[in-house]
Deep mutational scan, measured.
Amino acid sequence: DYYEVLGLQRYASPEDIKKAYHKVALKWHPDKNPENKEEAERKFKEVAEAYEVLSNDEKRDIYD
């Protein structure tokens, strides 16, 4: 669930989505996790995908 990936509720505002994305993206950035790079890359891609969908009103409506 994209909301879960970003740690958000379904009623999150666009500002909340952006803030959550930056927080979680920093947490899972591969450069910040050199000891667990493969998992970090996978999680970072999930976070980016979730943000791409939830930050676009049209894609978010379809997802919801």
Rank of each mutant, 00 (worst) to 15 (best):
D1W: 15
Y2S: 09
Y2V: 00
Y3G: 02
V5M: 14
V5L: 11
V5T: 13
L6D: 03
L6R: 02
L6S: 02
G7W: 00
G7D: 03
L8N: 03
L8K: 02
Q9E: 14
Q9I: 00
Q9K: 14
Q9S: 12
R10A: 13
R10W: 07
R10Q: 12
Y11I: 07
Y11M: 12
Y11N: 15
A12V: 00
S13D: 09
P14S: 15
P14K: 14
E15V: 08
E15P: 06
D16T: 04
D16A: 10
I17T: 02
I17G: 02
I17A: 02
K19W: 09
A20K: 04
Y21S: 03
Y21V: 01
Y21K: 02
Y21R: 02
K23F: 09
K23P: 01
K23L: 14
K23W: 05
V24D: 04
L26K: 15
L26P: 10
L26Q: 10
K27I: 07
W28G: 09
H29F: 05
H29I: 04
H29A: 13
P30T: 06
P30H: 07
P30D: 03
P30N: 05
P30S: 05
D31P: 03
D31V: 05
D31H: 06
K32H: 08
K32Q: 09
K32F: 07
N33P: 05
N33H: 15
N33R: 06
P34V: 10
E35P: 08
E35W: 03
E35V: 07
N36R: 10
K37Q: 04
K37M: 08
K37S: 10
K37F: 10
E38Q: 12
E38N: 08
E38D: 07
E38L: 13
E38G: 10
E39C: 05
E39N: 07
E39H: 14
A40F: 04
A40Y: 08
A40L: 03
A40C: 13
E41A: 11
E41R: 13
E41G: 11
E41N: 04
E41I: 07
R42Y: 05
R42F: 08
R42G: 08
K43V: 06
K43I: 05
F44W: 15
F44T: 05
F44C: 07
K45Y: 07
K45R: 13
K45C: 10
E46K: 12
E46A: 12
V47L: 12
V47H: 00
A48F: 09
A48E: 15
A48C: 14
A48G: 12
E49M: 11
Y51I: 01
Y51E: 01
V53Y: 06
V53F: 13
V53R: 03
V53W: 08
V53P: 02
L54H: 05
L54Q: 02
S55T: 10
S55Q: 08
S55G: 15
S55F: 02
N56R: 08
N56A: 04
N56M: 08
D57G: 13
D57L: 14
K59D: 08
K59A: 11
R60Q: 01
D61M: 14
D61C: 09
I62E: 15
I62S: 15
I62M: 11
I62A: 15
Y63Q: 06
Y63N: 06
Y63H: 12
D64P: 04
